[in-house]
Design a protein around this nucleic acid. Structure first.
Lengths: 239, 239
DNA sequence: GCGCTTCTGTGCGTTAGCGTACATACTTAG
DNA sequence: CTAAGTATGTACGCTAACGCACAGAAGCGC
């Protein structure tokens, strides 16, 4: 099943012209990311960048007291490890696997070489980074202005957009960590959504039953982010 | 007083090697930014990028109902208009002058040309962008976890770091818009700081009396951002 | 001076989310 | 089958921030 494990399932890799892709391909190493696995720690230099194919990675800000908040989420449309090509080498945030699945990794130096070559990859990565910035900015706004109910809808939809299925493997406790709120608050908000027939969940498994229903409840933040991703990452797949 | 109007007061321009600076210099146009002036609107293409020297510019996310939140602040250490070299051309955010003063602007195409030339400027701008990302991420965390008192301290200190003086020209109403809170809340928090002798304010003018006192009250977010700016933007000023 | 606007202060009642404590499942290991 | 561990449900008081309403106070135009 070579097709099931194609690096080009990652949209950044998939958008590369043939020659650039072939230059990188031999160095791409498939890895299986486990739920909760850490790909980057605050202040530590990453050795690889990761291109998720069917996994999701959360970027988290961790505070001194251990509380954390998700500032962005990365799936098959993106890359984990932007600091390696942005030049800073490290970031103060942490990258945790939110949904287990496959990814391809690449040694940091190799990516940097290709990036500095003013390649197509450079343009893709910069546009992607700009989309990521939009996501972070909108997260900041959402944290200030919107109810937990709305934020939960946003989180579910953003995650859903990055998954092939309609089911998330995720406890309310973990969602609470992502959103930076109490677990009980998530229980309450998720309960509302379940009563409304939009989702159903059961011990760490959440099924989305009515996506349009979620979209009707979500705050504008979701739309702003989605629109910007669509705009910035609408690649023309090379022949 | 040529020295008072030197583009190199902006730290990005100041960190350029001689040849790159001289290539840009003739195209740099000094402008005076007025309080409240808009340099960028959501979704609109900017014609110039701005390098503040002694002004401060806020990047704001504006929502459908008109409420806004500051997601980052740019002073002499930075540039306004990253989307022009990141490749997206536009952003969903708005850039508003928070403190009147000087800046140098440059046509977008000229900056893009220099950037694509894999120059020192490119490296500087990418590192700066990474610092900006850190600021946005920390803003998101702060919005979720910290009290208005702490956020006000953070905001004052971040602004102060970008100004030559210890006085801000800023009403409580405007600060509330920046922080995305009620004006009354700012009145209350600022009142506490004034009672504690840390600041004094009077009809739109805020003087910082005790900076260490503010630093003792601020949340960790300020330190995280400052440290990351220092790390990423510690240029070796060329000879 | 006078009137208008802007800026700041203050006092409500209301609400969202927190902290805590505990109850009730369901799941897995033994 | 039982026990331990994990996931979810619920309740109660507390606090920060909200929305609203209005009162002073300082500056500005005339």
């Amino acid at each position: 099943m070579a097709q099931q494990h194609d690096p080009r399932q990652n949209r950044l890799l998939g958008a590369l012209p043939r020659d650039e892709y072939q230059r990188l391909m031999p160095s791409l190493e498939r890895v299986e990311l486990k739920l909760g696995e850490s790909l980057a720690e605050s202040g530590k230099v990453m050795r690889h960048v990761y291109f998720p194919t069917d996994s999701i990675v959360s970027l988290l800000c961790v505070m001194e007291d251990g509380d954390s908040t998700e500032i962005a989420v990365v799936g098959a449309e993106g890359i984990v490890g932007i600091s390696l090509f942005m030049g800073g080498e490290t970031t103060p945030s942490r990258a945790i696997v939110q949904s287990a699945g496959g990814a391809y990794r690449l040694k940091g130096e190799l990516l940097k070489d290709e990036f500095d070559h003013a390649s197509t990859l450079q343009h893709l990565l910069l546009r992607y980074t700009q989309a990521l910035i939009t996501q972070m900015a909108q997260t900041a706004v959402c944290n200030r202005h919107h109810s937990l109910d709305q934020q939960l809808c946003r989180w579910l939809l953003l995650s859903l957009d990055r998954l092939p299925t309609d089911e998330l493997v995720m406890t309310q406790e973990l969602i609470a960590n992502m959103l930076g709120v109490r677990r009980e608050g998530v229980t309450e908000s998720a309960g509302k959504l379940q009563k409304a027939g939009l989702i159903s969940y059961h011990r760490g498994h959440i099924s989305i039953l009515d996506r349009p229903g979620l979209e009707a409840r979500v705050c504008e933040c979701y739309g702003v982010v989605k629109k910007e991703y669509d705009r910035l990452l609408s690649y023309h797949r090379p022949g």
